[in-house]
């Protein structure tokens, strides 16, 4: 009955099949200023024209292979869409994803519409005039663990947790962002020249062995210290330097602790004693230092889970009740 696919053919002859949709994005969202350029693409603030509500919109571009849109992209973005519907308060919710294809169908652009927050933790820590009170540090840390616990419970490993990906609002609500896309992006790496921060990477990631959700716990361990001390715990510029920075402070891992299948041998590194806790964790209270130590165990299986962390003494009596945001109720 259908011998010719008329409409598709016409669209193909016109060279572009997506123009109407691109228009649609711009009819629905007014693009404002660029607020960030990350490994994942450019982030804009946008206004959702029908409601006037502000969002952050992330645009990612990737090449379309001869098998169409890559399977990894479909899997990961649809799992983010599922997560978005669950709407956890410490997760930066994906409200909508749109896509368009350009360059004669060779480039796919994906637009992800997410919550817009006031700061990221990096800017926040950089710009606050003085050290945060202990309780405020704990409230922030607790929310990071809660968000990550939710991700892990949904089988998502962030893999690139860092202060730039931890967003924070004026009411002290913390939201984890940029999760779930790391794998997509490592397979599409040619698109980005952005320098990736290595400061929060665990040794098993740096040494390119197999890894699991414990890499996120390591990253939180690093951030815990940074929240109190306002400087990164381990700061190397290259993977090699990052390993050295880590080993200089925590001591060289024992042969048992050295990750199996590591690309570099343990013998390459000089022996190093571990620094005492007060030098490592600075002004952190004892319970915080204990938790950070647990997060920074060289053996991933021994690190605490996010759920466990939330049960430690560090969080006893810590609560966060953000002022009710009217934003939630819209839509």
């Amino acid at each position: 009955m259908f011998t010719v696919l008329q409409s598709l053919k016409e669209l193909r002859m016109a060279g572009e099949i997506v123009e109407p949709w691109d228009d649609n994005i711009h009819q629905t969202y007014k693009q404002e200023n660029v607020i960030g350029k990350g490994a994942y693409g450019v982030v804009y603030t946008v206004t959702h024209l029908p409601t006037g509500r502000k969002f952050a919109m992330k645009k990612m571009e990737m090449r379309v292979s001869e098998e169409g849109v890559p399977q990894s992209v479909i899997r990961e973005i649809s799992s983010l869409a599922v997560l978005g519907k669950k709407n956890h308060e410490n997760i930066n919710t994906l409200h909508e994803s749109l896509c368009s294809v350009s360059n004669n169908g060779t480039t796919l652009a994906i637009y992800m519409v997410m919550d817009k927050c006031d700061w990221d933790l990096y800017t926040f820590l950089r710009d606050i005039p003085r050290d945060m009170p202990d309780m405020q540090c704990r409230v922030i840390a607790m929310q990071i663990f809660r968000g990550v616990d939710f991700l892990h419970a949904n089988n998502i490993v962030h893999r690139d947790l860092k202060p730039q990906n931890v967003l924070i609002n004026k009411d002290q609500t913390v939201k984890i962002a940029d999760f779930g896309l790391s794998r997509t992006y490592s397979s599409q790496a040619s698109f980005t020249t952005t320098v990736v921060t290595l400061w929060y990477r665990s040794p098993e990631l740096l040494l390119q062995t197999s890894y699991n959700s414990a890499v996120d716990i390591w990253a939180i361990g690093c951030m815990l210290s940074e929240i109190y001390n306002r400087r990164p715990l381990f700061s190397g510029q290259t993977e090699a330097q990052q390993l050295v920075a880590t080993f200089t402070k925590l001591g060289l891992p024992s042969p048992q602790e050295w990750p199996r299948g590591a690309v570099i041998e343990r013998a390459t590194y000089p022996e190093h004693p571990r620094l005492p806790d007060n030098l490592l964790f600075g002004r952190m209270p004892q319970e915080g230092a204990d938790l950070a130590k647990w997060c920074l165990d060289y053996i991933p299986e021994r690190r605490c889970s996010a759920a466990h962390a939330l049960l430690t003494r560090f969080f006893h009596g810590v609560t966060h009740r953000p002022a009710p945001t009217p934003l939630r109720e819209v839509n």
Binding site: M1, F2, T3, V4, L5, L8, L11, R12, I17, V18, W21, G68, V69, I74, I77, S78, S79, L80, A81, V82, E96, S97, L98, C99, S100, V101, G105, L108
Partner: peptide, 29 residues
Amino acid sequence: IFRVNLNQLMDDVMSMERVLLQTIKFDFT
């Protein structure tokens, strides 16, 4: 039902994939 050659049909399926993506918006689960 499909009275086109293989290449044409593959092209159509690919084009249609994009329309589907745009329509269903990653709600694939």
